[in-house]
């Protein structure tokens, strides 16, 4: 049996993030009978809309409403959570850029265990929560046990748990604003200024039907030529994983993933990409995915439809030649 289970809801413009429903599934993996309480901070109509939306998936929804919460600051939210969470509680948070800002410090302030980036949960036995995590960019998995006798902060990998939208009769919305702000709005050493939107590039890969995407396996900037050649032969556009952008070999606007673009092509070629969850998080619409990687155990092969174990530096030019060859035969 676990203590009370909470979930921190990330939302934007009046819509709850997908993880809001994935955390319901995660909570049930902790304890199928657990009463799950959602915590939502924000302000105004947007906040109310989100609370109502998720009230059918959670038994109870705690809302914290204040104008200064219109943009969520993890430092502020951390203090508010410490004020309202009961001792020994478990709180689930998405392992996204907000969760990464909030969760580690929260575990210290609550004096609770911290279990980061869980991809599966195997229940609780005698205050020991068993879970699955990934290491080395998803190349291997581990079972971990976490002592939850003093509570726990658990972040869950977005997309790892299958969203559950089963309806509860009458999930209640409880206003916790007064309790959270009783001693005043938290003072922090950090001030939000603005969000600067990512730059738009020359090609909008979010509209492409065919993407030839390249990862660190390309090894050198000069080798990108073979990727452009293949994209041209296929009639597609070139995209990439994060390290290719970090190395400044391609523009940021071509990066696929959680901190890049979300793409929905019909066909996605993953060349020398290992398949981290942050990369796969940017691929939607279940495209036909072909992975070419020299490591037969690369996690990308679990997500792809078709796989080839090969060195892209040899394989890609040959593939391009054959495509061009078969086309010129057709045309003559």
């Amino acid at each position: 049996m676990a203590g009370q289970v909470f979930a921190y809801i990330v939302h934007k413009e009046g819509v709850a993030d997908d993880t809001a429903f994935e955390m319901v599934a995660a909570a049930k993996r902790i304890d199928p009978d657990a009463a799950i309480t959602a915590i939502v901070a924000g302000t105004g109509i947007d906040l109310n809309v989100v609370c109502n939306e998720i009230a059918s998936s959670y038994q109870e929804v705690w809302k914290i409403d204040n104008e200064a919460l219109s943009y969520p600051d993890a430092e502020v939210i951390r203090t508010l959570l410490v004020r309202i969470l009961p001792e020994g509680g478990l709180i689930i948070i998405p392992h996204d850029t907000f969760g990464m800002d909030l969760a580690p410090g929260l575990s210290i302030k609550l004096d609770a265990a911290y279990l980061p980036d869980a991809v599966d949960i195997d229940g609780v036995d005698d205050n020991r929560l068993k879970a699955v995590r990934q290491e080395y960019s998803g190349q291997v998995s581990t079972h971990v046990v976490c002592d939850i006798s003093g509570g726990a902060v658990i972040t869950v990998q977005p997309g790892a748990f299958k969203a559950e939208k089963t309806k509860w009769p009458g999930g209640q919305v409880v206003d916790k604003t007064a309790q959270a702000l009783e001693v005043g709005f938290p003072a922090t050493g950090r001030r939000f200024i603005e969000v600067i939107e990512a730059e738009v590039g020359d090609v909008d890969i979010t509209k492409s039907e065919i993407l030839v995407s390249v990862g660190r396996g390309i090894e050198d900037e000069d080798n990108l030529e073979i990727v452009y050649d293949l994209a041209r032969a296929m009639g597609g556009d070139v995209a990439c994983s994060r390290p290719v952008v970090d190395a400044k070999w391609l523009e940021k606007s071509r990066q696929v993933g959680t901190s890049g673009k979300t793409v929905k092509p019909k066909v996605y070629m993953a060349l020398g990409i290992s398949g981290s969850f942050q990369h796969q998080g940017g691929i939607k619409g279940a495209p036909f995915m072909v992975a070419i990687n020299k490591n037969p155990k690369a996690p990308i092969f679990q997500a792809a439809d078709v796989g080839v174990v090969a060195d892209i530096l040899d394989f890609v030019p040959e593939l391009t030649n054959k495509i061009n060859g078969s086309r010129s035969r057709l045309e003559t």
Binding site: K130, E135, V140, M289, F301, V306, G307, D314, K322
Partner: peptide
């Protein structure tokens, strides 16, 4: 409070259809 029990490779599930054969066969 958090301990690693073991390392394992998850069941690949469905996984990709792996193309095998000579390079020419695979490409075709």
């Amino acid at each position: 409070k958090v301990k690693r029990l073991d390392y394992f490779v998850p069941d690949p599930g469905e996984g990709a259809e792996m193309l095998e054969g000579s390079a020419d066969e695979i490409i075709e």
